[in-house]
């Protein structure tokens, strides 16, 4: 049971990172990134392939973050003239291309066979039998750092500008600030987080293949942000945790509900999550969390 809990929490941590990245890009920035899973996959592959080539895992992770950030920035540049809905299509197409390239360019990525034997960071540091706990600690540490960074950003003048471009890019331009500049930076920072999450994915499973990455990752991330409340990092953390625990925990229903098989349950679980989301959107369309304000502004007005 403990092992199961540790495994689930690790999955939660990685999902939370993906959710936080989307919350920056879409929640705060209004940039619909349907291609989330492609950037995540790229992060996993960069980290995985470099590690099996003998690069130290932390270096591989850093390269994954920088690589995905750079590619994200480029994809934001391509979509400069596109409105929100077209950006969704472009990013989705971009991610599918990435997935196809990774699936079929076997000389580079080992194709459908996948990459095996990926080494985790600090794996010799933990005593025998504590490898998973050790890795969980690393993953939670990553979440902590990313959360603190994003909260800092959200409360900074930069965060305010990002939210302004979401509300009305035309106004931001009339104020003499480049919207494209903001968007590229938002995509880059979000991309770095996705690269980090993907890298951790590769380290955790020590084996990656293209079937592990699909649009469902994007769907879960959007769910986490919608439930958590757009713009609220805390909300994303709570909802990612809740979502994964509901999905994972409901596996045990098989033991308690008579006549329920594993395959029916798999379908029912997704069905329940879907219904839950619809109900939530009817009764609490803004989600549970609240978006942070820029610090000084909030402080001064509270002491009116």
């Amino acid at each position: 049971m403990t092992a199961y809990l540790i495994a689930t929490l690790t999955v939660v941590a990685i999902a939370a990172l993906v959710g936080l990245a989307l919350n920056l890009q879409w929640g705060m920035g209004g940039l619909v990134n349907f291609g989330l899973f492609g950037f995540y996959m790229l992060g996993a592959y960069i980290a995985g392939l470099l590690t099996v080539q003998g690069a130290p895992p932390l270096v591989a992770l850093a390269v994954a973050m920088i690589g995905v950030a750079a590619l994200s920035a480029v994809s934001a540049l391509i979509s400069v003239r596109l409105s929100e809905d077209y950006l969704a299509i472009v990013t989705l197409g971009f991610a599918e291309c990435l997935r196809l390239v990774i699936s079929y360019e076997g000389w580079l990525t080992r194709g459908m066979l996948g990459v095996t034997g990926i080494e985790r960071p600090f794996q010799n540091l933990w005593p025998r039998g504590f490898a998973d706990i050790g890795f969980l600690a690393i993953a939670l540490f990553a979440v902590l750092i990313v959360y603190a960074t994003l909260q800092g950003l959200a409360r900074s003048p930069f965060g305010r500008l990002v939210r302004a471009t979401r509300d009305d890019p035309g106004v931001v331009e009339a104020l003499g600030k480049s919207v494209l500049n903001v968007r590229v930076r938002v995509f880059a920072v979000g991309g770095a987080i996705l690269g980090l999450a993907g890298g951790l994915h590769a380290f955790y499973y020590t084996y990656i293949d293209p079937t592990q990455f699909g649009p469902i990752i994007t769907a879960y991330a959007f769910m986490a942000v919608v439930v958590g409340g757009r713009g609220s990092n805390r909300g994303v953390l709570v909802s990612a945790f809740t979502l994964i625990f509901l999905l994972e925990g409901s596996r045990f229903l098989v033991d308690y509900v008579h006549g329920l098989g594993a395959s029916e349950l798999a379908a029912i679980r997704l069905f329940i999550v879907g219904v839950g989301l619809v109900v939530l959107l009817i009764f609490k369309p803004d989600g549970f969390g609240r978006e942070p304000r820029s610090t000084l502004a909030a402080k001064s007005s509270s002491s009116l």
């Binding site: 305010r160 939210r163 009305d168 106004v171 104020l175 304000r293 502004a297």
Partner: peptide, 17 residues
Amino acid sequence: RELASLSVVENVLVAKP
């Protein structure tokens, strides 16, 4: 064209060059 989700004071602050 107010920035609807920003607070009133944030709307003004965001304009600072």
